[in-house]
Design a protein around this nucleic acid. Structure first.
Length: 282
DNA sequence: AGTTCCCTGAGG
DNA sequence: CCTCAGGGAACT
């Protein structure tokens, strides 16, 4: 599932394939995917040159000067650059022609089995007004340690839910939240206000270490994740707890547990991530 | 803060 | 068959 490292990898692989190229005809084959379009519809994209591709949270932003494309891949979305003649399957919902003057035609395609993902085409100046972007918290790889301490100090609730909450910190999903808390040895249900400073610092530094390591590995390919060139990532081989329920903890051998939390699941080691013992009553 | 919904392929 | 997974919005 595309989380920060996967979306970062998609943006990085997409950038050299589309930057500088001019967009042509766009074909939309699933209306619900397009949440916003300019007054002229997708035809407004024709003739625009792609300036740059970047990531914010779990979203891919394609800057075309005065227009911007915003994609959210949710769980099964893919952004691919393929030869224009390559067969489209029933999950290809949007295709935009890429012109380059040469004879080799390509398309930027959005593909999404579950159709949870979306695209917005909006005036570049209104990017910060896009609701899904406006609500985002800071980037986990940009926030400094002191700001992260302050961020958690202002929040109540379970640490795992806070890491998953995009308005707290942007880009972390279930896989990396579990991996971060395991590395930091913090129980997922621990309330933020009860975390010791050393634990908050551990969450901050493991968050950076794991996200950076996952980006180096080009993301985690579970389900159908692939980058813009169609390549899978390698971080699934380095996962310590996610998806390992019942298997031995790689640190202590205890069976990994899985519990429901906030409509999701949390995998953790019950020994390495002991819940905080309540204060002793006197 | 928890529940429901969207959607579909995979796995039981 | 049936159930489940899961990001995030919308609801309660």
């Amino acid at each position: 599932m595309p989380e920060l490292p996967e979306v970062e990898t998609v943006a990085r692989t997409l950038a050299p394939l589309v930057a500088g190229r001019v967009l042509g005809r766009a074909e939309l084959t699933c209306a619900k995917i397009l949440r916003q379009a300019p007054p002229g519809g997708l035809a407004a994209l024709e003739g625009r040159r792609v300036r740059e591709v970047r990531r914010r949270g779990k979203m891919v932003l394609i800057d075309c000067g005065d227009l911007a494309l915003v994609f959210h891949l949710k769980m099964t979305g893919q952004l691919l650059v393929v030869p224009a003649g390559a067969p489209r399957d029933k999950h290809t919902h949007l295709a935009i022609e890429l012109r380059d003057g040469g004879g080799f035609r390509q398309e930027l395609r959005f593909h999404d089995v579950r159709k949870f993902g979306f695209c917005r085409v909006c005036p570049a100046g209104e990017l910060t007004g896009v609701p899904e972007i406006a609500a985002l918290g800071p980037e986990p790889l940009e926030i400094c340690r002191e700001d992260f301490r302050a961020l958690l100090a202002r929040r109540r609730g379970r640490i795992k839910s806070l890491l998953l909450n995009q308005s707290v910190v942007a880009g972390i999903g279930n896989i990396y939240a579990d991996e971060i808390l395991f590395a930091a040895r913090v129980h997922p249900l621990t309330r933020a206000e009860r975390l010791r400073r050393a634990e908050i610092d551990a969450v901050w530094s493991e968050m950076r270490a794991i996200l950076n390591r996952a980006i180096e590995s080009k993301g985690t390919s579970i389900s159908n994740y692939i980058d813009a060139e169609g390549r899978a990532g390698g971080f699934q081989d380095l996962l310590q707890v996610y998806g390992r329920e019942g298997e031995p903890c790689l640190r202590c051998g205890t069976a990994i547990k899985r519990i429901p939390i906030a409509g999701r699941s949390a995998s953790f080691c019950p020994r390495c991530q002991r819940p905080r013992r309540p204060p002793r009553p006197r």
